[in-house]
Write a protein that binds this DNA or RNA. Structure first.
Lengths: 224, 224
DNA sequence: TTCATGTCGATTGTCGACAATACACATTTT
DNA sequence: AAAATGTGTATTGTCGACAATCGACATGAA
């Protein structure tokens, strides 16, 4: 049997959600845009039922807002959203990092280290976009290792909204070296079995909280 | 115009989600039960579309699990779920309490104090169920005052799953006085403008974390 | 017995059609 | 002119029907 070609006869709902998610994240569909069921119906050549259910799925991920009897709109990420997210993301990623450190198996650490190597390559080549991508994967992998599914779910929602925020890349544009150095230190901590788990938690939480002021500054300066 | 009769021509989806939520929380529908679209269709006298969308809504709230092409089932809350929730709930409610304290207006404090009075009455009358109910409202109100909508959303999801866990009431059965005393202290802190916000955060976080061991003990002893 | 295969009923996935509603614009009223 | 009212069209909410699929049971083979 041919096993390298992944089976993908998943339901229409998943395919549509995925397509829309990508379109929103890469800017094809802009924030505030209205998603009209009948338009997408033509575009995809399906009926409205799976589209409506895909909307609910996107809503769960925090990518769209559903206004009953009015329509579905791509969420506008505001400065206030970002401000609300930071303290939550900081403590939760901190906890996730500690749990990950406590529960990590060798194979899992290896995988993260591989991602780190990609970050390194991107950083050396000054490849902002690549760095941004692998940086995101790095955190995703760390969060996964925490094996706390509720934490994984919540952080996924918060982080996907972060991705919508294009300004994010500006942060790494200016301080790519700083960010890289920070993650290098993080990896050193993770590899040393003698590290105090609470220190890992603090380190990650602080790393995120420290990014906040500059992040918000970029919002004010560069957007609009 | 007659205004005391609340308008309720909300969509079918909301009505159905609400009905199902209550049925799940009060035990009419038990955990693990399968929710069959065609059955509910007869029960409510509506088509399957709003029912399917209501399922997605319940799924977002963490009350059901949707298995594609198989069916929708009421979530089974396991010991592991509770263990995953505690650290998250503790830090987030802590943050919520601090923010609430920092942003609280007089009217809002009054409302919380009224709820506390109901808790007091229930505690004095040894009315477990009533105490449990107002205790939940107390925390809800405090969380609302934090005005961090993301925090409010996440905590709502976590807390509703907690409600599904019937053992919860056992906790208060044994230690209703202790719980009451704790919330009395909390209210004192909230009323004193000189309290350090960080202390409010610690107090609430510790209060939740302290409950964990006994909570888990009840699970092991009394369930099944 | 134990495992593989076939068949059937119940249930979910998807569709196209109709009903209800919201918004934009035109018309009337003050 | 400004506000209130009427009308039309685009869009969402709901429905009933059909197609695809799953799981239980029956049948047959090792």
């Amino acid at each position: 049997m041919n096993n390298n070609q992944q089976f993908k006869p998943i339901g229409l709902v998943d395919q549509i959600s995925e397509w829309l998610t990508n379109a929103i994240l890469d800017g094809t569909i802009k924030e505030g845009d209205r998603l009209i069921e009948t338009r997408l119906q033509e575009l995809f050549g399906v009926s409205r039922s799976p589209i409506r259910e895909a909307f609910r799925e996107l809503n769960k991920m925090g990518l769209v807002v559903i206004k009953p009897r009015i329509g579905t709109f791509v969420k506008r990420i505001t400065r206030n959203d970002i401000e609300e997210q930071f303290p939550i993301r900081a403590v939760l990623e901190g906890i996730a990092a500690r749990l990950a450190f406590e529960r990590m198996k060798d194979g899992e650490l290896d995988k993260i280290e591989k991602t780190f190597k990609k970050m390194k390559e991107a950083a050396e080549g000054n490849d902002i976009k690549g760095y941004w991508k692998y940086h995101h994967i790095f955190h995703d992998q760390l969060i996964d290792v925490s094996k706390n599914s509720m934490l994984i779910d919540i952080l996924q929602q918060i982080r996907i909204q972060h991705l919508m925020f294009k300004v994010a890349s500006l942060y790494y544009k200016e301080d790519l070296q700083g960010s890289f150095e920070l993650h290098r230190k993080m990896l050193v901590l993770l590899k040393d079995r003698k590290t105090d788990p609470r220190y890992v938690e603090d380190f990650v939480r602080n790393h995120i909280e420290k990014a906040r002021p500059r992040f918000l500054q970029y919002i004010d300066e560069d957007l609009f």
